[in-house]
Nucleic acid binder design. Structure first.
Length: 534
RNA sequence: GGGCCUGUAGCUCAACGGUUAGAGCAGAGCGCUCAUAACGCUUUGGUUGGGGGUUCAAAUCCCUCCGGGCCUACCA
């Protein structure tokens, strides 16, 4: 009773525009972010969950050229493709924006102007590689070399090193992966390096100081890594402009209502330096009261069957392919229950088949099946009345309470794998109870007792649907529908929670909740996604 | 080359200085028959990568060697 509604701002690292992402990308940011967002909503908290496509930079230009399309057109199409796939995985963004939006353009220019006014931008004259063939400058990773007379702006992160370091040092509860990467960059070599924030490209945010031109920087755009994180903020503006809300600043401006917001970011480890140093430098350097991140959850990589996922080799499973094969819940469950939190993890088809069949089909799905079908055959498709609960039922409620409280703790702490393991243990309680209560036996001598036992077990289905919804939202919705129940309030009191479906309440035996993956399918997929090997 | 992460039962992982190192899967045995040949119970299995050291006590701290990964680069 009366716990204050918390407010959670949640962002997932924004996926790059040039193609469909693979499962490793999904589990590294968007999927766990969605898990957390869904959990916080389920607890009755207020959530703003934002993601977008990262659209600027040379790789986008190259991909567009390859596709034979203007880059803006290409990005618009790919944004729609990614949005559709995200929806397929049930990623519950409040808004899925675009870093190429006018909102982000304005905001990026605004931040650059503020940083320049604060003396945090340094103009540098250095050399870059220019490709006459492509008509563009190439980033280091494409080619190493030099060419004369190219100036650019650099963000003086070095001037903010102490401020950033103190801030990082204060985050003692962050994952080691996050803080160790941040500290490495802070203290590496000569210390934190300044970073160029402009590039000589056509596709990007034009370099300006706010609304004003920037002498000497004509024809340049901001570096993609400068404008990409700013899109987190701009995305909230897009959310308003899309008619989904009315006030974005109460999520982002601590002087306009965001002081009680908890901001959590999700990302793969390759993104950590930009989120622990570059973006905070932008925020802090602006001198304006923007909301800084409170917690950064970072992930290691997911590998594929003994190697890395490879886009160029077609090795591994990509998001669109995954959904062609199986419903989103299967993937969500496996990926989240095997999230690469402490080290790199590996996807294998054997493990996927075994985990999904056991956890989803046998433990959860079959539990639902056995009790609903038992009830239908003995009492009809109605929660039976009669009988009372005794010590055995009280013990079940006690164990559920203990485990649900533990589950909540893991979810709040974003301990993804542990939360999944705890949820599974909660499902198991249902099977254990049925085995020991054995309503099929008690029914013979004492139908009233069997009715009471069945009533509890049926209520567990609804309870499980509520608890499981952050992991497997579609199955949860299906189960709620089968139980003909709208009440998805979080189970603060478990005794109350297992009394929600009263005697006489009608339900329907659902279809098989999770079918099993056959050996033939597993072998077929194993071959199909092995990639073109040399 | 440097830094960080990591190496625990066949497999995937917990335990992060303190009772006989735990769980799921797989294996073995038993039970149940409501159920997607599902479920439950019991059980086999580890000198915690190797070797030193600190401590009353180490998977857990230190040193070293070996293996895996990430980041970064001649510099701590």
């Amino acid at each position: 009773m009366g716990h204050e509604m918390a407010r959670h701002l949640i962002t997932s690292a924004i996926p790059y525009i040039n193609g469909i992402k693979h499962l490793g990308n999904l589990v590294g940011s968007q999927l766990p972010a969605d898990l957390f967002a869904r959990y916080q909503r389920a607890r009755g908290n207020e959530v703003m969950f934002l993601c977008a496509t990262d659209e600027h930079g040379t790789p986008a230009e190259i991909a567009a050229a390859k596709a034979g399309k203007p880059v803006d057109e290409y990005c618009a199409e790919m944004h729609e493709v990614q949005a559709k796939i995200a929806n397929g995985f049930r990623l519950s963004f409040d808004h899925f924006g675009r870093s190429s939006s006018v909102q982000n353009q304005k905001l990026t220019q605004h931040f650059a102007g503020r940083l320049a006014d604060a003396g945090l931008i340094r103009e540098v004259n250095e050399t870059q590689m220019y490709s006459h063939a492509d008509g563009r400058f190439l980033p280091d990773r494409y080619i190493e070399g030099t060419c004369p007379n190219c100036g650019f702006d650099s963000l003086r992160q070095s001037a903010m090193k102490d401020q950033l370091e103190n801030w990082i040092d204060s985050k003692t509860d962050w994952p080691i992966l996050t803080t160790s990467i941040a500290k490495k960059w802070l203290n590496d070599g000569d210390g934190l390096q300044d970073r160029g924030i402009t590039r000589d490209l056509n596709w990007g945010v034009p370099v300006k100081k706010g609304d004003a031109d920037w002498p000497g920087m004509e024809g340049k755009v901001f570096y993609v890594w400068f404008d990409a994180p700013i899109e987190y903020i701009a995305c909230a503006q897009e959310w308003v402009d899309a008619g989904k809300g009315t006030d974005w600043e109460r999520w982002w401006r601590t002087d306009k209502g965001a002081d009680d917001v908890t901001y959590t970011q999700f990302m793969g480890k390759d993104n950590v330096p930009f989120h622990t140093l570059s973006f905070p430098a932008t925020i802090l350097g602006s001198g304006e009261p923007w909301k800084l991140v409170d917690y950064i959850k970072s992930f290691n990589y997911l590998n594929y069957d003994g190697g890395q996922f490879s886009t160029s080799r077609g090795r591994g499973v990509f998001m669109d392919q995954a959904l062609e094969i199986l419903p989103a819940d299967y993937w969500r469950w496996w990926l989240l229950s095997h999230a690469p939190e402490s080290s790199d993890a590996e996807f294998t088809w054997d493990n996927f088949q075994a985990s999904v069949n056991k956890d989803l089909a046998d433990v959860l799905g079959n539990f639902v099946s056995r009790i609903t079908k038992f009830c239908r055959s003995k009492f009809g498709e109605t929660v039976p009345e009669g009988g009372t609960w005794g010590a055995q039922e009280q013990a079940v409620i006690a164990e559920l309470t203990t485990r649900i409280r533990a589950y909540e703790g893991f979810m709040q702490a974003i301990e993804v794998r542990k939360a999944a393991a705890e949820l599974r243990a909660i499902w198991v309680i249902g099977n254990e109870y049925l085995q020991s209560a054995a309503p099929w036996s008690t029914f013979k001598e004492n139908p009233e007792q069997a009715a009471a036992q069945t009533r509890l077990a049926l209520n567990l289905i609804r309870l499980y649907a509520v608890l499981s919804s952050p992991f497997i939202p579609d199955a949860s919705a299906t189960l709620m529908a089968a139980m003909k129940c709208q009440d998805d309030t979080w189970p603060d009191n478990i005794t109350d929670a297992v009394n929600v479906l009263p005697a006489g309440h009608a339900f329907e035996v659902p279809d098989v909740t999770f079918r099993k993956i056959s050996d033939e399918e597993r072998e077929e997929w194993q071959t199909r996604f092995a990639g073109i090997r040399a």
